[in-house]
Amino acid sequence: MIESSSLPADPGELHLCISYADDLRDTPDADTLEQWDVAIRHRRRVHEARRCPSSPGECPSDDCPANVVDDVAVGSMTFYRVHLDRGCNAYVAMEELSEDLSEIAHVLLDPATGYYTDEAGELLAYSGSALLVMDRVTLDEGWRGHGLGVILAAEAIFRLMPGCRAVACSPGVSDLSANRLRERSEFDRVTTSIAEGWEKIGFLLYRDNVYLLSPTSLVLEEQRALLRREFVELGASWAAQARR
């Protein structure tokens, strides 16, 4: 059974909230770039003693009206759906928004047209025209180290990729708060581990640290089924250890 003793709470209560906020800006880049935010949240039942009608130690905890569900954020993901066929030049829009998006645009898109380069286009089966960029995946420190980032990212990608010809990412460390990551060897080890996680769901290195996943590939669908089983096993392991 998968080891889960170091997790802070039941992983089976994790869930995703996917949202897109439209600022209703009448600008070409607003039609080209859509930012999709994914909140990683955890449900837990909390007993509020001040609302409990029973005396201390006599509360029937399962049915107590003082039990409330607390839904807290434990991580987040940021994706961009880049529409190459509307608004402004997608290459320019990505270059202006952030250095990370610019890095991906330089590798995949033609600066003159904003469309996929001929080289990239030859690799990608047609399943739509848009580009989905996985920009950030972060989890609170207590939830790291169990493969949950990959499991949750696979679910988010599956929901957001319809209409896209490619999914792209540039693996790296977004949270540099840990002192251990200030050492180059440890930073490289963590970065390599992150890239291996994305390769697990079908991302392949294309060029210059830009990884590509084709929505038509069966790898994501196959791995998603395996990852869902791992997720269930992780929850079962946590529950079994919690009963001890």
Rank of each mutant, 00 (worst) to 15 (best):
P8E: 10
H15I: 15
S19N: 05
S19I: 15
Y20S: 06
T27V: 12
P28V: 14
D31L: 13
D37F: 07
A39V: 14
R41T: 10
R43D: 12
R45D: 07
V46H: 09
H47K: 03
E48M: 07
R51N: 13
P53T: 01
S54N: 12
C59Y: 04
D62R: 02
V69Q: 12
V69I: 11
V69K: 05
D70A: 13
D71C: 08
D71T: 12
G75V: 00
G75S: 09
S76N: 03
T78M: 07
T78D: 02
R86M: 10
G87V: 00
G87I: 08
C88A: 13
N89H: 05
A93E: 00
L97W: 00
S98Q: 00
E99F: 08
D100P: 00
E103V: 03
I104W: 01
V107A: 01
L109F: 09
D110H: 01
T113A: 15
G114R: 03
T117P: 04
E119Y: 07
A120P: 14
G121H: 04
G121L: 06
E122P: 14
L123E: 14
L124I: 03
Y126I: 14
S127A: 10
R136V: 09
T138S: 11
E141P: 04
G145C: 08
H146L: 14
V150D: 11
L152E: 15
E155T: 09
F158R: 13
F158D: 11
F158I: 10
L160W: 01
L160E: 02
A166Y: 02
C169D: 01
C169R: 00
C169M: 13
S170M: 05
S170R: 07
P171G: 06
G172C: 06
G172H: 01
D175G: 05
S177W: 06
S177F: 05
L181V: 10
L181Y: 07
R182F: 13
R184M: 12
E186Y: 03
R189V: 13
V190N: 00
I194V: 14
E196T: 12
I201E: 06
G202R: 05
F203N: 08
Y206E: 10
Y206Q: 01
R207A: 03
N209G: 02
L212H: 03
L213R: 01
L213G: 07
T216F: 11
L220G: 04
E222P: 03
R224V: 12
L227F: 05
L227P: 13
L227D: 11
R229M: 13
E230V: 06
L234Y: 11
A236Q: 05
A239P: 05
A239V: 14
A240S: 14
A242H: 04
R243F: 10
R244I: 09
